[in-house]
Nucleic acid binder design. Structure first.
Lengths: 341, 341
DNA sequence: CTGAAAGCGCTAACAG
DNA sequence: CTGTTAGCGCTTTCAG
């Protein structure tokens, strides 16, 4: 933003007509003389005119911009979801503004404020694992700003959501472990307040119970932090007395499962012979790591698109809108980190 | 953007003072009575006031927003660069707006227009492989909008750039292939107008010449499209008469090299015994694929940060600014897709 | 079909 | 220390 940018006023003066006529011509209003319109368009071209969306937004009280908050852009699940959103949003004339919370509650709050200050027309949020208090998001709802939660959602918020059936995915994954002979299956999860982790834990527990396996509290791990703690916890589990050690690890997600697989390789523990590993998400590396990782795949790109669709529906009919939850399908991808049936 | 958002006017009325005083208090101007200031801040809090950056931007002619255009968000190199930018930008009070060109010139042009219309304070661009005409970017420069090109840059543009030494990286990679006994080394590159590809090709050629190997035109491939064509071309090379077949493939980047590696596996061609493969970029999968991919790594996150730094320098001193090019270090990561020395 | 005028929410002289 | 005033660039009545 500097000088030298032509405005409708410049066009109006050059053409010796009023700025309202220019404005009309530019926006293709019907009640404008063809000749005038042509002249305006030509002059705009000549002056390299670029509409000022900032001024427009202020006037029409819409920015045609959507805000997105994700924990970490560079995780493939999120960049892929963003990519889906971006494509869908662009098709409907929306730009997107992106923030990352880096799994920090404070940063997430700041992000929300920043995007609200920018008067985005809607917010698409995947919550940080740290977030339990959802007042900052609730306040958006109170201000009538459409919010769509995706993947990392919260029960406490009456908003549109895009999720996969985490319970079902976890159930299938755990059942697969059981069916391939595992009995002491550990769950490596996130904080106790982390909704998505709890859903997956419930699926895991239900699968155990369904197959008459009594859950062992010792094998259920809640990590407060998702980068280094999971590895520590796995090491701890592996140092338990032989009979108490797990014979399978069901990890909250692939970004946890992949390093776990590497750790096991370092320790010369054979996968899946000695221990099976299952992840969740299906990050690209998971197919390539040796052994390839059995995981529950989520349709990240489609989830992104869907989130935009839900926003659009909601924004068309803000007054009588009831929060919908779109549940997408997961697929259990059986690869080589689990035993054959 | 809907109703119910408090403005400084609301605060002024409630407190029975002028809006300029409110404005001053809110921005922490020095010449405001402590009491007044306190009252304003409290009232702002109470009304859930959120500054309107749209109005601010229009008035001060700066948006504190940066535009980013990348070919594809979900490629790790780009999402990682974006992540670096986002973190650095946030520290300096900038928001970011993201577009993807999807390797389409037309889309890239549209992106530029959209971001210009949004009056971003600067643009960070990694050009599509299709882009040869750079007039759309030149026009930004003419309008005094700071532009920083990163990774996918163009020679024709006098702007700040963040690159790696592509020539050097390619030279090292090719030399490594030669030193491990390869003689018929193919280059799988991009379009002839694709700057980065040409740089890498030159590094490749210079390495060959340096080692007295006469380049074979037949082994130098230019793909117009980067998703499916490279595989076709490799298949073609593999169907040449035995003596004309390559014994190594140096690929423009990892997103090409990885599928190539898979193709070779399908065809039961042993890597690196029968043919060596080298990539460029170092995507996360490259370390995990079997055999792991020898590649030239680029510091994506740092390149992103650096790009923001260059923007900041430039925007501080727009008038007498000379375009700098920051060249970052690459590292040859020798893994298992090439033979041992 | 066109123009005049008001105003979106905010900042920044200028004057007190 | 505070208030008045004039816009930033645009859209949108309301008149003609």
């Amino acid at each position: 933003m500097r000088n030298t940018q032509a405005t409708i006023r410049d066009i109006a003066i050059k053409l010796n007509i009023s700025i309202s006529t220019v404005s009309r011509a530019l926006r293709g209003a019907p009640d404008v003389n063809q000749e005038t319109k042509k002249a305006v368009l030509e002059m705009a071209e000549k002056l390299n005119y670029e509409p000022n969306r900032v001024a427009q937004s202020l006037r029409i009280k819409r920015t045609n911009t959507l805000g997105i908050i994700v924990p970490e852009i560079s995780l493939h699940f999120f960049s892929s979801a963003i990519s889906g959103m971006q494509e869908e949003a662009a098709q409907h004339g929306y730009s997107i503004m992106i923030c990352q919370s880096l799994e920090s509650f404070e940063t997430e709050k700041q992000n929300v404020h920043m995007l609200a200050a920018n008067r985005v027309d809607g917010l698409l949020i995947s919550m940080s694992s740290e977030t339990k208090d959802v007042a900052h998001i609730q306040s958006l709802i109170n201000k009538n700003i459409p919010v769509v939660l995706f993947d990392r959602v919260s029960d406490a918020l009456p908003v549109a959501k895009v999720v996969v059936d985490d319970h079902d995915g976890a159930f299938k994954a755990t059942e697969h472990l059981i069916q391939t002979g595992c009995r002491r299956i550990a769950y490596i999860g996130g904080p106790l307040t982390f909704y998505i982790s709890n859903q997956r834990k419930r699926g895991y527990l239900d699968a155990l119970l369904h197959h008459n396996i009594i859950p062992d509290e010792q094998l259920i791990v809640h990590c407060h932090e998702l980068h280094t703690e999971p590895l520590e916890q796995v090491k701890r589990l592996l140092s338990l007395p032989k009979t108490q050690q797990p014979d399978a690890l069901f990890c909250l997600n692939d970004p946890i499962a992949v390093p776990v697989l590497q750790l096991l390789k370092e320790k010369n523990i054979r996968v899946p012979e000695e221990i099976s590993v299952v992840g969740f998400t299906n990050e690209p590396v998971s197919a390539f790591i040796e052994p390839s990782l059995t995981t529950v795949s989520q349709p990240s790109h489609e989830m992104g698109k869907k989130a935009i669709e839900l926003f659009l529906e909601q924004s068309h009919d803000l007054d009588n809108f009831t929060p919908v939850t779109a549940t997408m399908k997961t697929t259990l991808l059986v690869r080589n980190s689990t035993r054959k049936v």
